[in-house]
Design a binder for these strands. Structure first.
Lengths: 342, 342
DNA sequence: AGTATTTGTGCAATCGATTGCGTGATTTCT
DNA sequence: AGAAATCACGCAATCGATTGCACAAATACT
């Protein structure tokens, strides 16, 4: 491994001082140097194959040009698009990201934040914090630029980029209503997540608006956003004896679990029970009967989150919107049947 | 943002020299110091909340404890499990990984390698190199520890971890044969990828072994491993007029595309045509009729790749197997029908 | 007891780039 | 033409941790 070319090497080669070389190669400082000198340095740097050592630079400037990207699990298809969205702006801006999987485990989250801090990240994008997350709030308070995307932390000043949960849920509930459904159950998300809470509240509010009958048993709360909980909650609905013709699920994976549980109970979707999801994860069009869902702009959530973070990192005094709400849209597939209102 | 505690601060506080502090905190060098001194330093370090500055350390030691993880696209469900597998060993070992998406674009790949090099990664795991990849070979030659996983580069000494492509394809072809199929088409992967080539060769070899009739038209080569190409190739097969009762696809996404194209042509899978895939990506069990496929151990591929890389990074003289081949298994679902041999 | 060896720390250079300050040379101004 | 201002670049400190070498004190040896 031949040792890399350093500023010193170029300085020796061109007969100038290393500080001059440094300035010649810095687009911002280049102003006060002679055109020729800059050109001479630039060309020999190129010729010698100079690659700046970011470590040395970072040590001096206190900026690593890297950020931390915290997600629950990269295997959850909801997150890769967010990651790509974020990188679509980070990479061109010269930032590199360290992705960590928290597995939605507070202990891991705390440990991984330390890892990121130790690595000197310039900022953090947290894609799925808890509603109450004192550790992250503390880190942000200390002055580390941070944005949360997809979910948000309550009682904090941390800017967040989320989709329009209330609007999306209302849209979906109205859609079911328009399709004749009057008895609609809801499988809600975990209460300790902002998405879980926002969606259940929107559901209740819209149900009231539409004058829907909403018995307590028609509303079950899941512990995790996954298929297994979707199955469990669906079973619970079925066994409670409450009457319903549709289930509005707080996310797609719960809905996929519902598909499964209904099938196991010998019920057909959408003929017996209609089901709807939320998020719009991939492959949904390939899974029968095709989940009607709310498509959230995952890529844009990541993209805008990264844009905000860069703004915060480069201009500490910039005014950053506390919450950025992105519009969603309803994607019709086959899981909702039009019925005659009872 | 209160400034971090440094060795110098601890030195001042405890009245010793910073080099002593450094040694006291280094588990390896701690030997030659007095128990008490070490203890005193350790405790005040703890009390002051000392966090080592990895940048400074790396600058001096030339080790960043970070590695580059190159994948085509994190949105492709094949890769997240590989990533998790790799991180399952990297993280506990104190390594952090920088994930880059090449989009299977040579220009991007070249650029991203430079980014990684500039960041001073200690090694690289490349999850999908081209068969011929001089740039990566050159980087490896220069002395940077590197392993390729999932695919491999030909004519290079770079260790790779791959699944048993020949075995898997042979297994699948035999399976179709046992189910009565005698006219079997193959949608092959791109020729410039090791997986594409290995699989087509295995297909031909096994077909010969089984004395299958294999006209040229029954074998079409895709340009990319994706659904669109699967559709195109299937259409081509259908329009060529060649006779076949099953299509063995070189990967799952091609097979998913085949599902689609068959449907568009009014054909049913598996009643009219059987289809098989390769890889075992998620959600396959939810997509009708359920793709029968070869499950590759993605997580283990990542895990073992990372283990090899760590070995290479920590002991340059270690003997590393040139190729590590992992076993695969056949997963039966509903896309293959048993028929009477014509 | 006197010399040789070991032990525990300190000193200072180093990794590579950045940057405030200084200075000689050139240009501009009166 | 002489003073002032500007310009182009060099000097040296700095970021924080690591490490070979030096050296004094303590211990072991003959």
């Amino acid at each position: 491994m031949n040792k890399p070319v350093t500023l010193k090497d170029i300085a020796r080669e061109t007969g100038v001082h290393v500080s001059t070389v440094s300035r010649a190669l810095d687009p911002n400082a280049r102003t006060s140097l002679t055109r020729e000198v800059v050109e001479r340095i630039r060309s020999t740097a190129e010729r010698m194959g100079y690659r700046p050592n970011r470590l040395a630079s970072s040590l001096r400037t206190k900026r690593t040009m890297s950020i931390g990207l915290m997600i629950p699990d990269i295997e959850n298809t909801l997150f890769p698009p967010i990651v790509r969205g974020a990188e679509s702006v980070l990479e061109p801006a010269g930032y590199t990201s360290i992705i960590v999987n928290t597995d939605s485990d507070r202990k891991r989250e705390a440990k991984l934040v330390d890892v990121l801090l130790e690595r000197g990240v310039d900022g953090i994008i947290h894609a799925a914090p808890y509603l109450s997350d004192p550790r992250m709030i503390e880190v942000a308070r200390r002055g580390l630029p941070m944005v949360t995307v997809n979910r948000q932390i309550e009682n904090s000043e941390i800017p967040s980029v989320v989709n329009d949960d209330p609007g999306g849920i209302a849209m979906m509930l109205r859609y079911l209503h328009e399709h004749g459904h009057r008895h609609i159950a809801h499988i809600a998300g975990p209460k300790n997540l902002s998405t879980g809470r926002a969606r259940i509240e929107a559901f209740k509010a819209t149900a009231k608006e539409l004058h829907l009958d909403l018995p307590d048993e028609a509303l079950v709360v899941s512990n995790y956003f996954d298929e297994q909980e979707g199955r469990r909650c669906t079973r619970q609905l079925l066994e409670s004896g409450t009457e319903f013709t549709a289930i509005l699920c707080a996310n797609d994976r719960l809905a996929l679990g519902a598909f499964d549980a209904l099938r196991q109970h010998g019920l057909s979707c959408p003929d017996d029970i209609s089901v709807t999801g939320y998020n719009g994860i991939p492959f949904l069009d390939l899974i029968p009967p095709g989940l009607t869902t709310i498509q959230i702009p995952q890529f844009d959530i990541g993209r805008i989150g990264a844009e905000l973070l860069i703004k915060m990192m480069t201009d500490p005094d910039a005014t950053i919107p506390r919450t950025t709400i992105l519009p969603v849209k309803l994607v019709e597939r086959g899981s909702v049947k039009r019925i005659d209102p009872a």
